[in-house]
């Protein structure tokens, strides 16, 4: 009887993992506030990035403020390959990263080990 319960729990766990990690889950895109010709978005770094998708307006200078709240070394850098940015993120310190919004498009960012991802969408 115990074994059957364990089997059900085990299989249930596998099912849960599949659904939780591989199922479709909404990620919310955050639109930047444009103020006095400057747009800013705060990105919290804690077990990933929130928000994971940032929408910026083309041609308006933009700053993303990354604050790492996570003690894990996994997220201690943020890398934007398109712009050659590789910024160290000291814990609990906001790091401002200037984003080049001159060209519309999608730009990925990732952690130093390329395990966590986020992206900037520059819209005309």
């Amino acid at each position: 009887m115990l074994k059957i319960i364990i089997l059900i729990v085990g299989v249930g766990l596998i099912g849960f993992i599949l659904w939780w990690f591989f199922g479709k889950h909404e990620t919310t895109a955050v639109q930047a506030n444009v103020e006095a010709d400057q747009q800013t978005v705060a990105v919290e770094v804690k077990g990933g990035y929130s928000p994971e998708v940032v929408v910026l307006k083309q041609g308006v200078p933009a700053t993303l403020n990354f604050t790492r709240k996570d003690a894990s070394g996994c997220l201690d850098r943020v890398v934007f390959p398109d712009w050659g940015i590789n910024q160290a993120l000291p814990q609990n310190e906001a790091q401002a990263i200037q984003i080049d919004t001159s060209e519309a498009g999608e730009y990925q960012w990732a952690c130093g080990m390329d395990m966590f991802h986020g992206k900037v969408i520059v819209k005309p």
């Binding site: 990690f21 889950h25 077990g47 966590f116």
Partner: peptide, 9 residues
């Protein structure tokens, strides 16, 4: 924190 975002590391 990762888990709540549907990530694992």
């Amino acid at each position: 924190a990762s888990f709540t975002k549907h990530h694992a590391n």
